[in-house]
């Protein structure tokens, strides 16, 4: 599974690599929710730096996790979404509901 989950001081960081489509979204959702439900959560961060492709199934995954975070009254943050991902988020109006952070992904790479 192209997902790595890190947990530190109530912050869960999920790094997704490759494509998010309907086929993989369910498994990613199960893995994230398993971690969220385990212990108190302050913030869920989805790191999209290495996500090459996302369609409406990925949007469903993001909206679903946002809903889950608001149930736990925790923050949700999306890191480095691709321009196409932003386009899809804007179409659904989700870009206004979540925190989006763009770090300089080119630095630190060789």
């Amino acid at each position: 599974m192209p997902v790595t989950i890190k947990k530190e001081n109530g912050i869960i960081t999920v790094a997704i690599s490759g494509d998010i489509d309907h086929h993989v979204a369910k498994e990613i959702r199960t893995q994230i929710d398993l971690e969220i439900d385990k212990s108190p959560l302050q913030c869920l961060e989805m790191d999209m730096s290495k996500c090459d492709f996302m369609d409406s199934s990925g949007l469903g995954l993001i909206m679903g996790r946002l809903r889950k975070c608001s149930q736990y009254k925790s923050d949700f943050k999306l890191i480095n979404p691709a321009p196409k991902t932003m386009h899809i988020l804007r179409m659904a109006g989700v870009d206004k509901l979540i925190k989006i952070e763009n770090t300089d992904v080119t630095s630190g790479k060789e």
Binding site: D55, S56, L59, G64, H87, I88, M91
Partner: peptide, 14 residues
């Protein structure tokens, strides 16, 4: 319930 976003056709259109 399966977290379908309802954006399939709008995305195809856009």
């Amino acid at each position: 319930e399966n977290e379908r976003s309802g954006m399939g056709f709008p995305i195809m259109e856009s």
